[in-house]
Amino acid sequence: MVTSDSKQVAVDINEVTFRYGNIRALDALSLEIPAGISFGLLGPNGAGKTTLIRLLVGLLKPKHGSVRVLGEVPSRRVAYRIGYMPQLHSLYTELSVQQNVDFFAKINRLSGGAERARRVEETIRLVDLWPRRNDSVVKLSGGMRQRVSLACAIVHNPPLLLLDEPTVGLDPELRVTFWEHFANLNEQGVTIIVSSHTMDDAAHCDHLAFMRDGRVIAQGGPEELRSDTGQTTLEDAFLYYVRSGERNAA
């Protein structure tokens, strides 16, 4: 499943700047994300997390700098090896859970009827919606839709997952299930990049990047960030960096 070119570096972002008109969403940002880990992008609203993820899937093109995912410039050629979960649910609300997951399995080159059906079932069971598989998405609760959206992103077993706030609206029990599943995937060599606001997610990641105003203001393992700042919680560590950044800027 994981090919040799992704053994070391899954994502390489080099001095990337991106603007929407006058708004600078990313500011000379560089990141190197090794394969096979869970990487957390943390930061307040408007920090540039979604913009960064859209650059990685090729929906946006960097104005300056370069981006490489799985050793290639993002394009349709690598797209089927990426599982992308947008921040909004992005589902066909008239279709059933199963029809949604199956559609995204098909367009991501999961071929062969029986094999695909097995994989679709497995994924729907993973997000704990098998009993609701024939319901239209419109009849599901917000958190359930979030789970369908995640299922659509991971159904084709891609070696790289880009998940934009995947745990929003999930109940605590399911959060735990998801993180257990992510850890399993990491063991199989899958790289997972997750954006989030919650420090609960952050604690599950192997590596974190704190983002603010389109820049990475600190990065490291959760333990490292806590001890380096002398704080007891990740929240405090983040606030520490935000404040010290403000001090430096002033």
Binding site: R76, Y80, P86, L88, F104, I107, R109
Partner: peptide, 14 residues
């Protein structure tokens, strides 16, 4: 408007 185009465009479909 429902965001599915974003998913399609991020996939391998032309």
């Amino acid at each position: 408007s429902q965001g599915t185009m974003e998913r399609l465009m991020a996939s391998s479909v032309s």
